[in-house]
């Protein structure tokens, strides 16, 4: 169980680092219109990648539980931060529904919930036993 929580936290940690990166990309591309940010970004990737790899290897050796609550707080901050970041953006609107505040956030959440529930519905009749076709074939022969 402890291990399960840890791996879940690890996933959150990776999300957090991804989103931190996105924030940095956005920040740099927003304030500079030069080509410099490409280079900055590339180095950032290298540094973050190396750090993440070292942390990963370290965690694999030493079972020290990460601060779960802290991670959740950071995650929540990222979520709200991303919604706030969307407010000053100049949106290229193609459809009227894109005018809704935080449309993409709502859409992303709703789409995934819909997909999972639909898939759960399909699970009622799509799955068959692992040797379903073999049984059918043997039945024929």
């Amino acid at each position: 169980m402890k291990d399960e929580i840890r791996s879940r936290n690890l996933l959150i940690a990776s999300f957090v680092s991804f989103f931190a990166l996105i924030g940095i990309i956005f920040f740099i591309s927003w304030y500079t219109h030069s080509e410099l940010w490409h280079k900055v970004l590339l180095w950032l990737y290298v540094i973050v990648g190396v750090v993440a790899y070292v942390v990963l290897c370290f965690m694999a050796k030493k079972p020290a539980p990460p601060h779960r609550n802290l991670l959740i707080v950071i995650y929540a901050c990222c979520l709200t931060g991303m919604v706030i970041a969307g407010l000053p953006v100049h949106w290229h609107i193609a459809f009227p529904w894109e005018r809704v505040i935080a449309f993409y956030a709502i859409f992303g959440f709703a789409a995934c919930v819909f997909l999972i529930y639909f898939a759960k519905g399909l699970r009622l009749w799509l799955p068959k036993d692992y040797d379903y076709y073999e049984k059918k074939r043997r039945g024929r022969e």
Binding site: F15, F26, S29, C78, V83, G86, Y104, G108, F109, I116
Partner: peptide, 22 residues
């Protein structure tokens, strides 16, 4: 551009939230 990056990031982020919650 701002709208691409933030739009995509918002969508993926809240999709991850949906996954986590579910």
């Amino acid at each position: 551009t701002g709208s691409h990056v933030v739009g995509q990031a918002q969508m993926l982020m809240f999709a991850s939230l949906a996954f986590y919650v579910l």
